[in-house]
Amino acid sequence: MKLRGKQKRFLRSEAHHMSPMVQIGKNGISETLLDQVDELLERRELIKVNLLQNTDEEATEVAGIFEETLHCEVVQIIGRILVVYRASSKEKFQKYSKQVQSV
Rank of each mutant, 00 (worst) to 15 (best):
I24G: 04
E42Q: 11
G5Y: 09
G25E: 02
V37F: 03
E39R: 14
Q7P: 01
I81Q: 13
R80F: 05
F10L: 14
L41R: 04
S13Y: 09
R44S: 11
F66A: 07
A87W: 00
V75H: 09
L11E: 02
K90C: 03
I78W: 08
R86N: 09
P20Q: 01
D35Y: 11
S88E: 12
L41W: 06
D35C: 06
F93R: 06
L51G: 07
M1H: 08
M1L: 10
G79N: 10
K98H: 14
I24E: 03
I81L: 05
S88D: 08
L82H: 06
F10H: 02
Y85H: 06
L3Q: 00
I78P: 02
G64K: 09
K90I: 08
L41P: 07
A87L: 03
K95E: 14
G5E: 12
V62Y: 07
Y85K: 02
E58T: 09
V83E: 02
R9E: 13
L11F: 03
Q76H: 12
D38S: 15
Y96S: 00
V83N: 05
P20W: 09
Q36T: 10
K95V: 12
E31G: 03
I47M: 04
Y96T: 04
A15L: 02
E61V: 10
E57H: 03
G64R: 11
E14H: 00
I24K: 01
E42T: 08
E57A: 13
V37D: 00
V103A: 00
E68S: 14
Y85P: 02
Q7V: 00
R43G: 13
S89P: 00
Y96G: 00
I24D: 04
C72T: 05
S13L: 15
I29R: 03
R86C: 05
E39L: 14
Q53G: 02
E61G: 09
F66N: 03
K90N: 12
R86K: 15
G25I: 06
R43T: 12
H16N: 11
E42W: 02
V37T: 13
I81C: 09
S13N: 15
K92T: 08
G28R: 05
Q76D: 15
R86Q: 04
S13H: 13
H17F: 12
I78H: 09
S97M: 05
T60M: 10
E39M: 12
K26V: 14
K90A: 07
K98E: 15
T55C: 05
I29E: 03
E68A: 13
R44W: 11
A87F: 00
I65W: 05
R4S: 12
L34F: 06
V22N: 01
K6I: 03
R43I: 08
V84M: 01
R4P: 01
E61N: 15
